[in-house]
Design a protein around this nucleic acid. Structure first.
Lengths: 221, 221, 221, 221
DNA sequence: GATGAATGAGTCTTCATTCAT
DNA sequence: TATGAATGAAGACTCATTCAT
């Protein structure tokens, strides 16, 4: 056996074949899996790859996840929860003009979701919704619906105070968020195909978008 | 399109793949394939299923397409060409106010793309972009870029004439189209999960959106 | 490709890579599977082996059987039915002394079951009963119970006519059949270990057994 | 027994496998393994299960047994030795009529073997004979052959004394033991499938069988 | 052309075995 | 000793592709 492992066979202070890392393993596996799932999709990602990227053997995956599907679900859930928490935390209510709230909401949304792995996750769920209806529903109810409700309440408050023009709050959400969402999602599909300098940078895009939203939302002075 | 696939060198008496062959077989196969690819994604769709839905045997597929990938590409291309043609045709330039052009563009876009299989195709390309970069590029250049250019020219004209407020034409496109695009794409992922009556109907959505766009675009009277 | 198949590459009248044999394939597969299941047991038999022995590829098995279990069940059922039919047929009621019936029953039993693959099948079911309770039940009800009933009726008739000593028919069956059953089953386990000449030949065993049964069954003259 | 396993050459300071080691660990492991092997068969029993049932970790098994096969062999051997000892002990020669000897032999056999785990072990060996020929041979020579010889000597004596009818002693053994053996073995396969009340109780079966044997064996008064 | 039986490379999953702790 | 995390070879099963009919 040592013949097949010609790395300091007699030096027993070096190079153990593997390490115990019970605590950190699941997170490492999920991280590796997220990257590959986003990159290749669920079906085209081989467990071999995930294991290799995480630096473990294939069998190790099954110590922590019952199946490929189970791993997929863990990837989605584990990544969504902290993102949602961050988002909630960053949006602590401040008493400010509704236009400021609006701008802050969009900027926070981009920082917490659009510019993060959520974009990849959203694309993932979109693609696999047919195979994982429970995840799709979870995503819809926990992320989309909540998000829309939050933005709607800001608009509602602004309209009531006369700071914003009278706009149907629920519809407005869709109009103002959709561009960000789409930008985020499509980045994951097309960015690899085009050199970055040919497109608007996310920061520029975000600034332009906020300016546009405010222009169309605030009441005439 | 054939210009992007210079593989004539290996042609063995066969016509290019995307040409209609005897009878309407290829079209039927492509139609069956489109449905299933949109429904299940590329990897999860079995050729058995496609053949069954088209009422032929599995082997027959290989008389018309070299491989599953080849069939997938044909599906995309064959469905995009007529859609693009329809769209161009419906938008024949009419001398009308820019706001009317804008409304007509959005409505036509929805009728020709959003409410059609393009939504499914877009979702498909999004999901499979990593595996079919040439298709993704084709889609981006032929559909997205052209589309944006068209809308941009309308905006530009309207601004020049003073009918629309001064808006960056390219950015505005994204803001005004994104909601429609997203609505179209997400329908394909989430509609199966929720009873139709819980969501805004496409017609209502479209009307509201157009109204909103016009409100924020037209110059104050 | 022809380089990897250096067998008369240009001679197209010879050596097709495979043949269509839709009709006979299932029987061939079942036959191969029976041998290997009896020889190695269910778990230790690899589908590769079965396919190889039947001269097909692994995938072909799945054209005819849904799973390894399904194949196993087919093996049991397909082999049991003809055996049972043979047995019924060979035992057509003849009006003869009960002792003759008894002898004929035992001899027929041996010819139809003990000396055939049923012995292997019985051993198989015995071993796998825990995994295939439905098969075990089927075997018990269809083979064991029927068999016992048949023998019991012979005994009953003989006792009623005064040709046999008064014996509990159901118990007697067990006493008279058990040696044959055991001989049959154990042959499959131990015959491979001992040269045949060290043990009683089946024919000798059968003769001795019948003689013994009759001696203990018939009424004193 | 160690004589049949002359592998002392490779012994690395370890005691032979089948010796009790510190505390009673090995015995507990073997007991757990026996249950599970009998219940599920060799291949279908996972070492995880055995370890869990014995209340240790999987790795601990390898402190006492070199491999799963080794454990299996230990299970067979460890359980056979005490059974055989009990049997020998219970059958201490007593000067009594041959018919009494016969009855006592059958009853003792049942108590020591048929009603004990030997039934499970026999079924086990039957099923796994192909994989463990040395165990099968051991079982045959040590258990079956000795057992038959013992019964044969009783018969021989009885015949010589005129207490039993002239019967071929070796054949008679098979006829008289087979029903008990079969009953014992089959119980392990079919008892789980049928409620106990539908079948003859072992005690009733034994009584009936002994009565029957004696009736056919003793000389006419 | 059309068929569908046959193929076999590719993947997920299991589990006996090893070894760092 | 004892543990159980980690391994990796093995095996069931799938399905795009081929090819005899």
């Amino acid at each position: 056996m040592s013949a097949t492992l010609p790395r300091a066979a007699h030096n027993r202070t070096r190079a153990p074949r593997w390490e115990r890392r019970k605590e950190s393993r699941p997170a490492e596996l999920i991280a590796a899996a997220l990257e590959l799932f986003v990159e290749h999709g669920f079906a085209a990602t081989r467990l071999d790859e995930i294991a290799a990227r995480a630096g473990v053997s294939k069998g190790t995956l099954y110590l922590y996840f019952e199946s490929k599907e189970d791993l997929f679900k863990a990837v989605i859930r584990e990544n969504l929860v902290p993102l949602l928490a961050d988002f909630q935390h960053s949006l602590e209510a401040i008493d400010e003009p509704a236009t400021d709230s609006l701008a802050r909401f969009l900027r926070t949304w981009w920082d917490c979701f659009g510019a993060t792995r959520l974009a990849g996750i959203a694309k993932l769920i979109l693609s696999e919704a047919a195979h994982f209806p429970d995840l799709a529903r979870f995503f819809h109810d926990e992320v989309i619906a909540r998000n829309d409700a939050l933005l709607a309440s800001i608009v509602q408050r602004g309209v009531a105070r006369g700071e914003l023009r009278p706009i149907d709050p629920r519809a407005a959400c869709q109009f103002w968020l959709a561009p960000l969402v789409l930008k985020a999602i499509w980045s994951n599909s097309f960015d690899a195909l085009y050199p970055p300098q040919t497109r608007l940078s996310p920061a520029q895009f975000l600034d332009a978008h906020i300016e546009f939203v405010l222009a169309s939302a605030r009441t005439a002075p």
